[in-house]
Design a protein around this nucleic acid. Structure first.
Lengths: 230, 230
DNA sequence: CACCATAATATGTTTATACATAATAAAAAT
DNA sequence: ATTTTTATTATGTATAAACATATTATGGTG
């Protein structure tokens, strides 16, 4: 007879999902629930905290706990390291660094990285292959103010993402997903079918208030998709 | 001086992200951490639970707590109710039900909904417009075994998604995101530019082990993107 | 040496209690 | 009547203590 809080949590969850406690309504307070379930307030609190973390209820001091009105649904996709994604599919992974240079980033990148001055950043373009076929084009900018040690790394052997993941902490990551008409680099390297578009993942990562890196990952749209974990 | 567990949690998080506790290593046990931070084991446990729920550490009884090896990063995108998404952008929302019929679903849909028999499902095709321009084509199948009351609803006024969200609970949702060459319905209704692809969100929802609905939401790829919450 | 029972240990759960904090409601002052 | 102050209340955090449970380590047996 362990895990009482889980039982309580799923009982309360059922009352929410089956409409017994409609969206927007206030549910009984912790003390009353504790009495109903014959446990202490701490146990009720823990059950409610779980529901709160999942975004099903909102709790405010003195005001009580209410079922949230939620239209939207959250979908969490895991964006794997490219090597892992390719190898998990059973294919052979390979990697080529196409260009590596210190450049003044174009305005769009400067904005994304919130670079104020005219300093240079490290620009990398690399191609990730799956069984020898182009799988992903990586166009990356690394903020050398935040990550000066990247200037010394030769990214011919180790991919920039793998290196960053292992060496540089980050506190926040922002992603944008979209499909685009292929740009020049994608046309050159991704071996696209006629008129094929690319599926683009853009990511910017931050360490506190300092930007770390901005990357654009382009994939042939015909052979790429993202799925939530089941 | 409240929220000690949050301070501890972020201190521990820093030790993980800055490599003080490398990926795969075992971190000190709760009792030792309690001593270091001058608090009780319960407070340490709560801090660790937070990190565990975020997937940064893995805890096993007797074996201790270890930093997980994680290459990938999770990106959570909120897929709003279409009406809300359009209205939030400041545009006027409108909706047209194109077709509504009870049909035997094609094999791909039968598989997605895990329908074993040859029963019919409710098929809806609808168009969502933003300031009068096509924004999203919705192609939906509703499992009438799970949601028989949907058969009585006239979806001319209320969108199927809004109706389902408010009436039918669900326990699980699976999403797939990809870009596609437009199909016949998308070509007919979405007013695409020449050669333009569509950005597709597919969603299947479940109530326990029973499938509820499967929907395909197609958008003109040139004017659509998904972003993680900032 | 291999195998099985037993002890030790780190995390997991629950109770009981106390005080902190935020939001509201009620009372007092202007 | 309106504003300000004060009290009330529901949630939030923390301590201390006990027992449960899963996993590993150990020690004895064949």
């Amino acid at each position: 007879m362990e895990q009482k809080y889980k039982d309580i949590r799923s009982t309360l969850l059922r009352r929410i999902t089956d409409g017994h406690w409609p969206q927007g309504s206030i549910i009984p307070n912790e003390a009353d629930l504790a009495e109903e379930f014959a446990c202490t307030r701490a146990t009720i609190s823990r059950a409610l905290r779980g529901l709160s973390e999942r975004g099903l209820i909102e709790r405010k001091k003195k005001a009580g706990t209410r079922v949230v009105q939620r239209g939207g649904r959250d979908a969490t996709v895991t964006i794997d390291i490219t090597r892992d994604a390719v190898e998990r599919s059973g294919a052979h992974y390979s990697y080529t660094l196409l260009t590596r240079a210190k450049l003044k980033p174009p305005p769009a990148i400067r904005a994304a990285l919130e670079l104020l001055n005219q300093k240079t950043s490290l620009n990398l373009v690399a191609l990730h292959l799956s069984d020898g076929r182009p799988h992903q084009l990586e166009e990356r900018w690394i903020n050398l103010e935040t990550v000066p040690e990247a200037a010394k790394v030769d990214f011919n052997e180790v991919g920039a993402n793998e290196w960053l993941v292992n060496k540089i902490p980050f506190t926040e990551a922002r992603h944008v997903l979209r499909a685009e008409r292929p740009g020049e680099a994608a046309l050159n390297w991704l071996d696209l079918k006629p008129d094929e578009w690319v599926f683009v993942i853009e990511r910017t990562t931050w360490l506190s208030d300092a930007s770390v890196t901005h990357v654009r990952l382009s994939h042939p749209a015909d052979s790429f998709q993202l799925a939530t974990r089941t």
